[in-house]
Design a protein around this nucleic acid. Sequence first.
RNA 1: GCCCCCAUCGUCUAGUCUGGUCUAGGACACAGGCCUUUCAAGCCUGGUACAUGGGUUCGAAUCCCGUUGGGGGCACCA
Length: 437
Amino acid sequence: MIFDSLRWLGMDWDEGPDIGGPCGPYTQSERLDIYRQKAAELIDKGWAYRCNCTPERLDQVRDEQRARGETPKYDGHCRNLTPDAIAPDEPHVIRLKVPQEGTTIVHDSLRGDIVFDNTLLDDQILLKSDGFPTYHLAVVIDDHLMGITHVLRGDDWISSTPKRVLLYRAFGWQPPVYAHVPLVLGADGKKLGKRHGAISIAEFRRMGYLPEAVFNFLALVGWSPGEGEEQEVFTREELIQKFDIERINLAPAVFSYEKLDWMNGVYIRNLSREALLQHLIPFWVEAGFIPYPVPAGILRVLEIMVPLVQERLKHLTDVVELTDFIFTDIATPSPEDLIPKKTTPEQSLEIVRAIVKELAKLVSWDAESMEPALREMAAELNVKAGQVFNIIRVATSNKRVAPPLFGCLEALGRETTLKRLGQAEDVLVSHIAQQGS
RNA sequence: GCCCCCAUCGUCUAGUCUGGUCUAGGACACAGGCCUUUCAAGCCUGGUACAUGGGUUCGAAUCCCGUUGGGGGCACCA
């Protein structure tokens, strides 16, 4: 799923568990022997030790430390046992032997040196009692063996980085270049995480965002081209060319869906009609409006609708609500909606009847011929064209707000349009009758 | 509690390193207007910000220190 999401965003990679490569195996469970061997190496070098403290004892120690207002950390109970005090075959973990004096410096390419007092660092567990490594051990070994040169992470990882720097030192390896990027916050100012407001890339897709828009927007969260550059909409190629780690802003950024929505709209408007059509079809299918594959007759209707909705979409999903009346039956409009302001029910009825007459005599059922005919008709009736259009809109869609009228009528077809206008006529007739009694 | 990071409009940011051109620029959102068959889109106009106190300096959004505020971390999770 992560692979699919990354691919959707247009990211690719040179090697990995899905495509193989020279640095495999890539799955942790297939590398357990490496971790065990390396952990043993650290014990031999005096950089690690075995520990068989029970979880209960550790909890108790931590509780006591917290009660005393100290930073909870391992109390070193097993730190100075003789190497053979705990046999390799009895249950135990392996801990990092953090120096008890001095400092560890994390060089962050965005922030410079961050200095940590070693006495504050915990004797981190490296290998768990089930034989699996913790993240710290695994990532250091894997990154080194796989030739990783740069590590970019959220700044919530800063405080655990000295442990890994120490591991590099213990192994005698060169640490990678670290850059800790600011966190992305939710609207409430809290870290966006799995359990707090964050959504997966797959969800962006489901919500009707275009990958190009998400890619562009994400690049702009915490980064900007600077130097007076005021462009915000960039192609992928421009971003790849312009993006510079050094220009990442250090303050955490609030994730703004409002701006993402705007940007998605920009990208939707920039799409060709054909491309937008292809993007939209799955959402129409998903809504149950059209079958898939799309029959030629329906495709023609879709092709009419695409330009009408293009500049009205913020999300691709918006097309469902915008065009539902084209594909499904509508509820009968209320008389109130069919009677514009400053118009009597009788006038409305007269207008509807005139519309039906006018449309019925159209030779060709297309948007271009409807408009002039109806405008002329409105002039003859001495009413504003807008009023006429509003009535037609409500009668045919049961919406006060809809995409441009004549295109919709064309898409709807002569038969359905006239049927709905006939229903509107009925509504007005019975409304007038009720009022009269 | 302890440690770490950060601080310009409501939000994302330019400007900070290399003090003066910043009465602080842009974008989103918001308000008003234009256009208009509704809604959008587009165009125009508007309001809103250098957290605070002290230094350094002829001069500070820009450099230094304190304070305040926000965020993060403190697992046999990643």
